[in-house]
Amino acid sequence: MNIFRLAGDMTHLMSVLVLLLKIHTIKSCAGKSYPCSLCFILLESSSGISLKTQELYALVFATRYLDIFTDFISVYNTIMKLIFLGSSFSIVWYIRRHKIVRRSYDKDQDTFRHFFLVLPCLLLALIINEKFTFKEVLWTFSLYLEAVAILPQLILLQRTRNIDNLTGQYVFLLGAYRALYILNWIYRYFTEPHYVHWITWISGLVQTLLYADFFYYYFSSLKNNVKLKLPA
């Protein structure tokens, strides 16, 4: 474990916590007898969260952590896997099933056919992988899928007029975690002999590059202290 990977995992954990906080805020709002002004805004405007991206991430974790019960790495590793699995599936459940949270989900805007991402990633994993076994192909599939899983969310943000802070921070943290992982891979390449994982590295690089324009607008909005806005 190195500082880059720990920082990456913590950033990833933070992104999940921000999303859970946002869902909690929406839930607690509607619980009130009178909608406070913030609540009114929250409930009226769409949450800006893409269910499609959340579903893709749940699939990413489900196919990446198949070894959670067969290969024990460390307590930290197992706990983090359980957190990511539990949170991603519960977030999908909240947005799909929770009587209040699902009202803040704008399915008319979140129209990205994520099936068009799943199939190519699966085909690519069947062709390019480190070993043609069930677990290895699904693990490789999870890497390719994670690289593109943010696309429905980024497209939804372009359509969302006012991106609220929590959503912007969620996407920023999600992009930052993989950028930190790239530093971790560079560090491990120079410190560990034979540490070469081209598939992981290229997927992670593509994933981070997809955030490039978001990062640009995110930092510009911070610098100019204006509301985050993505050009359509």
């Binding site: 990977r5 995992d9 990833h12 070894d67 290969d71 790495i73 460390s74 590793n77 983090m80 896997k81 990511f84 480190e130 070993k131 290895e136 693990w139 992982y181 971790n184 992981t200």
Partner: peptide, 10 residues
């Protein structure tokens, strides 16, 4: 057969 190293990253 050559065993792949364990996946120690999340």
């Amino acid at each position: 057969h050559q065993e792949l190293p364990l996946k120690d990253e999340l």
